[in-house]
Nucleic acid binder design. Structure first.
Lengths: 138, 138
DNA sequence: CGCATATGTAACCATATGGTTACATAAAAC
DNA sequence: GTTTTATGTAACCATATGGTTACATATGCG
């Protein structure tokens, strides 16, 4: 497990350095676009090293359906696994989400913050404009 | 446009207060899962009030394909529009992204930060363990 | 070694997605 | 009033998605 953690670190560092290209982004957002898959991520995050079958038991759908969702998450590099005998232990890799956060979400959050400020200013300006109009009419 | 900005503010405030439920999240992530749609968001962000046709002209696919993507973005509340005669002006609504950022991305970013710290610690501990092993053998 | 358990693959199916062309409607321009 | 322009709807089609059942393979346990 220690050597695996080092592998995880090296791999994640590589991902952090590397660019998350457009198709990677597609894959990550697509993976997150289904509630079951977000729930799977949460479960694996809470229980690192959980086995495939134990994860599948948490859902109302067939084990195979969960395997399919798992494949989507793995394809998006959101989940990585380590074979341990006949078991497969699953771990969250939050690097892609971190990179989206770094490169995309914060961009729009900054935009949002500036929009809110601008709209507030316009609302106040509009309110004063209405006041002046009424004073003129009376 | 001023009254529309106020409407935008009120609507966005309502969204901020309201909960982004699971299906909303599905819709937002799904909307962001296609490069053309992310590009559309970027263009509308850069040119608020752009018309549908002008937006469509920026892409290699048919106008109808862009309309379909637009419908996805509107369904996810990421883009809102205002009819102006025969034109339809488009605006970005970054509130859903902000809410995902608030409720989901930062959660995993915090997890990621703690994981990086933990892995670094394990890597150092492992490195010292190897040093001791070599000393013992020689 | 035989049985139990964990995981995976293949095939099927209904629905969704992302593109296309053809046609329709309404507003703007002349 | 007629023509042009902007947008939208409908239908079609190939592929993808998200589920299912049946079967296969490998590891673990008694």
């Amino acid at each position: 497990m220690v050597t695996y953690a080092i592998w995880l670190f090296v791999r994640a560092t590589h991902l952090t350095i590397g660019k998350l290209d457009s198709r990677d982004m597609d894959a990550v957002f697509q993976a997150l676009a289904h509630e079951s898959r977000r729930r799977m991520l949460d479960i694996v995050k809470t229980e690192p090293g959980i086995a495939v079958g134990a994860l599948a038991a948490e859902f109302d759908v067939t084990r195979i359906a969960v395997l399919k969702h798992l494949a989507v998450l793995e394809e998006a590099n959101l989940i990585i696994s380590e074979r341990d005998g006949r078991m497969r232990k699953l771990y969250v890799n939050a690097a892609p989400i971190q990179m989206i956060y770094d490169r995309w979400t914060t961009d729009y959050s900054a935009y949002w913050a500036s929009e809110m400020t601008r709209i507030k200013y316009l609302a106040e300006a509009s309110h004063q404009h209405e006041k002046r109009s009424q004073t003129g009419n009376s």
